[in-house]
């Protein structure tokens, strides 16, 4: 069944009931749990209910000159709960990591209806085991995230995105090595090839205006000066695609094996989103430890399986 609770108590009750009756819960709509609960700009932290969209969260933060520096595609459609459950990120992953790196507190409804929290509202906190990490990237298989607290940052005073269109993947690879070996402070380091387009290296950075100007100059010495944007990311993610992750040094060899297919690669991180290509390796069975974790938190397998 699919849950569409009007409030937190209703969610707890509905999930506990389904769990008690051994009815699988296949999905949930937390539309009604979408409020911003706290934002303390002077503490650089913010707490919201998990049903709030990332776009709305960013909009609220921006009014105080702050942001959560995560930029996955389609932020209007992505709830904070989904952001955490998928450990999502976007082009700025090179500079700012993924949801895992910004989450400092979480509240979750377990299958038996209990509300549990971990972490807190301060940026440094090692009291208790780190259940935040258990739920980040768990895809809703252990509990339903209902509230989250994030560290946030001041919005950069200035930002710039530059791109360089390459004739071949080899040229892109050579340029990428020069950029990685430089002392540039990049937030975005992407390489993409959309259908019918040449490989394009994208570099983005932000900070004080003086920093941005300095980096523009440094990149122009590498022959990179064409203005770019991040539209490729949303465009690409509308198509069915797969993901693979390799050592950053293995990126170009892996891309070469993808032959003609379209891709967006987090080139610094070695994470590739691609259309078709070699068949995905068969999904490996979860390890015994992974399965024990699932069974411990969701003993009746009420929630989706791992």
């Amino acid at each position: 069944m699919r849950l569409c609770p009007a409030n937190l108590d209703e969610l707890r009750h509905a999930l506990a009931t389904a769990n008690g009756r051994r009815v699988p819960v296949t999905g949930w709509d937390l539309h009604a749990l979408g409020a911003l609960l706290e934002h303390h700009p002077e503490d650089m932290t913010a707490t919201a209910q998990a049903g709030m969209s990332l776009a709305d969260f960013q909009h609220t933060l921006a009014q105080a000159g702050q942001w959560l520096p995560l930029d996955p595609p389609f932020p209007k459609a992505m709830t904070l709960g989904a952001l955490i459950a998928g450990n999502h990120s976007g082009p700025r992953r090179w500079g700012f990591g993924t949801a895992r790196d910004w989450l400092i507190g979480i509240s979750v409804v377990l299958p038996d209806g209990r509300l549990v929290k971990s972490g807190g509202k301060v940026v440094k906190n090692v009291a208790g085991f780190d259940l935040c990490k258990v739920f980040v990237g768990s895809h809703g298989t252990l509990g339903i995230i209902v509230e989250a607290t994030f560290k946030v940052l001041p919005l950069p005073k200035a930002q710039r995105i530059l791109q360089h269109i390459c004739a071949t993947l080899e040229e892109a690879g050579a340029l990428l090595e020069r950029v990685v070996g430089s002392r540039l402070h990049l937030d975005i380091l992407d390489l993409h090839r959309l259908p019918g387009s040449p490989p394009t290296l994208v570099m983005g950075f932000g900070g004080p205006q003086e920093d941005v100007d300095e980096q523009c100059q440094a990149l122009s010495h590498l022959g990179i000066c064409q203005p770019g944007d991040m539209e490729y990311d949303g465009l690409f993610h509308k198509w069915p695609h797969r993901k693979c992750a390799v050592m950053p040094s293995a990126l170009m060899d892996t891309l070469a094996r993808l032959e003609g297919c379209a891709f967006v690669a987090r080139a610094g991180n070695g994470v590739i989103y691609h259309t078709q290509g070699p068949p995905a390796p068969p999904a490996t069975a979860p390890s015994a430890l992974q399965q024990r974790l699932k069974d411990a938190f969701d003993p009746h397998h009420t929630l989706p399986s791992l």
Partner: peptide
């Protein structure tokens, strides 16, 4: 003996739960 998280010759994204993250601080 188990290896948790990113392997020395592997990519950054690992399938399954973040057991490495669960362990750190335990």
């Amino acid at each position: 003996v188990q290896w948790l998280g990113v392997t020395p010759d592997g990519g950054e994204d690992v399938e399954g739960y973040d057991l490495r993250g669960a362990l750190i601080g335990s």
